[in-house]
């Protein structure tokens, strides 16, 4: 140990004065660490404060009506948040609708079924999918998924579900390939790895004896999963889903490529739309500093922040309870 110890390592011969000087750094170091911790809090406080200030002009001009107005008219200088908020919620909901079963399937496969040699590489591949930058999903969506949607999926849906009473408003319209459904599908692919990672970790953290006793009673794998593992891990699984929702709500680049970028509210899932994040990304360059339009975009950012922070806070609380 002493041979590899760096010079000045305690245990070597050091003067009492040097020792005292060294100890005096302790409060300084602790203070620095604590200050960095506080800096994280200040960062969140700063983001909330600055976004609220930036959107103040729009909130002040339009009042609470900003939240329920679907207008977005730069010519008349009238702005409302409803259409992008609608698009954000619908695409995120569609995303989760597909992502949750996919993520559950992946986690089920990785923890209960796949042999070790398979689970390792598959797990890594799913984690790599989470690392792919969002703009890549956007390009992939635009050049690969949109044509498939336009040529195959949307016409098929229009001819099948589009003829069913009550369902047909959702599945009508022209099959452009872009729109809310396509955006939701891209989101599903993007958030599945995040939800799957949480589910896998929770399933693995379960005490094996609980599962073993269920197997000992003759349960099948699916019964163990449904009646033992899921009830035991329910709050963390919901926390993982909320985490995915938080990701989906604020996703910008991927959505911007495939959503169609039209500010309107329509029941049709094929209709081009907008989300808060895609509207900001698209309109921001055309907004001059200090204008009401810029303030309206910042106010939208504030709304997105409130929605996603509440979602993420819920997610963290649910995840912490079991963790």
């Amino acid at each position: 140990m002493s041979a590899s110890a760096p010079s000045g390592y305690p245990g070597g011969v050091r003067s009492a004065a040097a020792e005292r000087a060294s100890s005096r750094l302790d409060p300084l170091f602790a203070g620095l660490a604590r200050f960095s911790g506080l800096a994280v809090l200040l960062l969140l406080g700063g983001i909330i404060l600055v976004m609220a200030t930036g959107g103040w002009l729009a909130f002040h001009t339009f009042g609470p009506g900003f939240l329920v107005s679907s207008a977005w008219n730069p010519v008349r200088n009238v702005y409302g948040a409803l259409a992008p908020v609608f698009g954000t919620i619908v695409t995120s909901f569609i995303g989760l609708l597909f992502a949750v079963p996919l993520a559950f399937g992946v986690a089920f496969t990785l923890t209960e079924m796949a042999p070790r040699w398979l689970a390792g590489p598959v797990g890594t591949a799913v984690e790599l999918l989470a690392a792919v930058p969002s703009i890549i999903f956007g390009m992939w969506g635009f050049f690969v998924i949109v044509p498939i949607m336009a040529r195959h999926v949307q016409p098929a849906l229009i001819h099948s579900l589009g003829k069913v009473p009550f369902l047909h408003p959702f599945f009508s319209g022209a099959p452009f390939g872009t729109g809310l459904l396509t955006g939701g599908l891209i989101l599903a692919v993007m958030v599945t790895p995040f939800i799957a990672a949480v589910m896998r970790d929770v399933f693995l953290s379960m005490p094996p004896v609980l599962k073993e006793s269920a197997y000992g009673l003759g349960s099948t794998r699916w019964e163990v999963m449904r009646k033992v593992v899921l009830p035991w891990s329910r709050s963390a699984v919901i926390g993982g889903i909320m985490l995915g929702l938080g990701r989906a709500l604020g996703e910008t680049m991927a959505i911007t490529f495939v959503i169609g970028n039209t500010n309107r509210i329509s029941a049709s899932l094929f209709s081009p739309g907008n989300t808060i994040a895609s509207l900001i990304a698209l309109e921001f360059p055309e907004s001059s500093a200090g204008s009401l339009k810029l303030s309206a975009l910042l106010a939208l950012g504030f709304v997105l922040m409130v929605i996603s922070f509440i979602t993420l806070a819920c997610s963290r609380m649910l995840l912490r309870r079991t963790g």
């Binding site: 994280v40 990701r247 604020g250 994040a277 996603s308 963290r316």
Partner: peptide, 28 residues
């Protein structure tokens, strides 16, 4: 309590929409 708050906030920022960070720095 301070450490728990910092941990909570940091975990939240981990998944926060990155476009918000862009807007924040733009204004700043």
């Amino acid at each position: 309590p301070l450490a728990s708050t910092v941990r909570f906030v940091s975990d939240m920022l981990l998944s926060a929409p990155s476009i918000l960070v862009g807007l924040f720095v733009y204004l700043l």
